Every structure is written in C-alpha cells, then in structure tokens.
Simulated scan of single mutants.
Amino acid sequence: MPSHGGEMMNRKVNSFVGVVVLLSLLSLLSAYAKQHPGDSPVFKDRPAQVMPGAVKAMMLGATMAGQRIVAVGVHGVVLLSDDQGKTFRQAKAVPTRLTLNSVTFVDNKEGWAVGHLGVVLHTVDSGETWTIQREDLNSDRPLFTVWFKDSKHGFAAGLWGLLLKTTNGGNSWDVVKLPIAAGATKGDKNLYAVFADKKGGLFIAAERGTVFKSTDDGQTWKVIDTGYPATLWTGVALRNGSLVVGGLRGRILCSEDGGEHWKEMDAGTKSSITDITESSDGRIFAVGLDGVSLQSTDECRSLSISSRPDRVALTAVVLNSKGVPVIFSAAGPANVK
C-alpha cells in the first residue's frame, strides 16, 4: 500500500503498528536492491507453515467465497472462516511464504491471491489448497491487487505501474502499458486497487491522487486526476454507480459521474484509509490505520467514525453472508479473541 520512499518517510503516522503495516508491503525490496540482472535469486520460496498463531498474523486482504470468508496476509498465511467470521483456521496448503496482499473469487470455489515478487496463487477448492501460477524471484515488483471478471479474464497490479492481464484464468499474464498523465515525466505510479462498476467500467486507484479508467475491458486506459495529491489505496463502485476511493491522511473521495469530477468527504480523521466496501442495502464501510472505522448510510454523503481503544491498524473489511462487516488488522481478524 505505501508509495515511494520519500512520501512514506515524510508522512506522519500516529500508530507504530501503522508504520509496520506500511513497511511490510515493501519489506522485500531491500533484499533485492543490490541484486544485478542475471544473478541467482536471493530468495528461495517455500510453502507456508501451518502455525498455531496464524490467526494473529497481519492480514492484508479479504473476500467472500460463497459463504466462506478468505483472508490473506504475511508469510503466505491464508485464513478461512465458515461461521461468518467468528472463528478462523489456516488453509491446508499454500505453496509460498511470501506476503499476500489481495484476494478475489469469482464463485464459491475459484479464486486468486497476489503478493510479493509478483506471485499469483490459484485455488479451485474455496481456498483450502493453492497452486502458483506466476512468480518472479528475480524481481522486486510486488502485486498489491487482483480482480477477475469471470473464470478467464482478470487483472493484477502493483509496484511501479505494473499491470498484468490474463484471458486464460491466470495460466499466462501479459503486461499492459498504462498512459502517462499530461505533464508527467514517467508513468510508474504504484497501483493499489482494481475495481469495476456494473456498466463494465474498470478502475485502478493509484498514488498521487490518480485513478485509471477503462471502458473496453482493459484494452485502453484513461488517466484521471482527482485533484487531490494523496495516494489512493482502495476503491469501490457503489450500487448507484458512484465511485468512492480512499487513502493517505484519511482522504475519501466520491465521484457521481464516472470519475470526471470528484469531491472530498469529511472523514473526520487523518488516519489513512486502507479498505472500503458496500453492503447490499447500500451501507458503506471503511477501515484505516489507528483502529479507525467509518460507516455511511446515505451513499457516502456523510460518515460516522469510531476508533478502537487499542488503535490497532485495520487493514481490510469484508461483509459476511449476513451483511455484517468482518474486519482484519495487523494482528489478525480484529474481532477474534
């Protein structure tokens, strides 16, 4: 989720755990900084360990696979819940110990997860077991987000403008070149969240207040400047067609015209927003660093805020099959003792 080092270091963070969350997503980069092309990989991947303390691991992404909640995080930990998020257990077999940042499912069985070193994992049994579809042990370009339209067509995106597209369920991936914004000298904005609206529009929340938009299934993309400089970590298209994105310093922006114009919502916090989702009845839930949770019942026109006393960094939120938000944090599922 963090952007380039300068922005990250200059930013004031009120929670030490929040700093850990930010740094963890780039924790592997220093290991490859002195590596030269052609060198042997400095990292040898191994399967994730099944650990008693896995439910306390930092989780960074979560989604629903039918009635099951699937969450992913550091050390290749994948957590599963079949009781609406009351309890979690570790997946049976995950072939990597790399940090996993994002997960998505197209039905109750088939899903994908992505993470450091560009790893892409695939499952066809609701997250119980996973296989590696892609991994680049010689590269320092983690994937931060993954989204699939159906069982064949999907996108994954990450560091330095890396956007990958598949048309065969992840068996192969092609690099998609994104346009460079007017006046910019390079097009390497980090990409943090791919999401879609009901009209077929695709969007990518990126750094420096940028949103990329495609209306032709990702064949071509348009650069949208929201007018706000803060990096955007997350985004969602609402049922009414509006777009909501969030990121650094508590920024939550809304567009009612497909991204042409944006207005900032008063989040009532400077804690960075890490995830946003919408329920079937139109409620909006957001979470952020410093234990911050936000909710809106009027399509994001107004927001109510609450904060956990422990100020643990909240990293992801998913709505269970009953519409109840299940929140994840730097210390595992936030509501599991």
Rank of each mutant, 00 (worst) to 15 (best):
P2R: 09
S3M: 05
H4E: 11
N10V: 01
V17Q: 14
G18A: 11
V20G: 04
S24F: 03
L26W: 02
S30D: 15
K34V: 09
P37F: 07
P41T: 04
P41Y: 03
K44M: 08
K44V: 15
D45G: 04
R46K: 14
P47V: 09
A48S: 15
Q49R: 12
V50W: 00
M51T: 14
P52H: 06
G53L: 10
V55N: 09
V55D: 06
V55A: 13
A57D: 10
M59T: 08
L60E: 04
G61P: 07
V70M: 02
V70D: 02
G73A: 08
V78G: 07
V78N: 08
V78D: 05
G85E: 03
K86T: 00
T87K: 03
R89V: 12
Q90L: 03
Q90I: 07
K92V: 12
T96I: 08
T99V: 15
L100V: 11
T104A: 13
F105S: 05
N108G: 15
N108K: 15
K109D: 13
E110N: 14
E110K: 14
G118S: 04
V119D: 02
D125I: 13
T129P: 06
T129Q: 14
D136C: 05
L137Q: 09
R141G: 01
V146L: 08
S151Q: 13
K152P: 02
K152G: 02
F155A: 07
A156C: 05
A156H: 02
G158D: 09
L159W: 02
L159K: 01
G161A: 09
L164P: 06
T167C: 00
S172M: 05
W173F: 13
V175A: 11
V175R: 13
K177E: 13
A182M: 08
A184K: 14
G187W: 09
V194R: 03
F203C: 05
I204R: 02
E207A: 08
T215I: 14
D216K: 10
D217N: 15
G218Q: 11
G218M: 10
D225S: 15
Y228P: 00
P229F: 06
W233D: 04
W233Q: 11
T234K: 07
R239F: 05
R251H: 06
I252V: 15
I252H: 05
E256P: 06
E256S: 12
E256W: 07
E256G: 10
D266F: 10
D266W: 00
D266V: 12
D266G: 09
A267C: 06
K270A: 09
K270D: 08
I276L: 08
S280G: 07
D281L: 01
D281Q: 06
D290L: 04
V292M: 01
S293Q: 14
S296I: 06
S296E: 07
R301F: 00
L303H: 02
L303D: 00
S304F: 03
D310P: 02
V312K: 01
A313C: 09
L314Q: 06
A316D: 02
V317A: 01
V326I: 05
V326N: 00
I327Q: 00
A330P: 05
A330N: 12
A331H: 10
G332E: 11
A334N: 14
K337S: 13
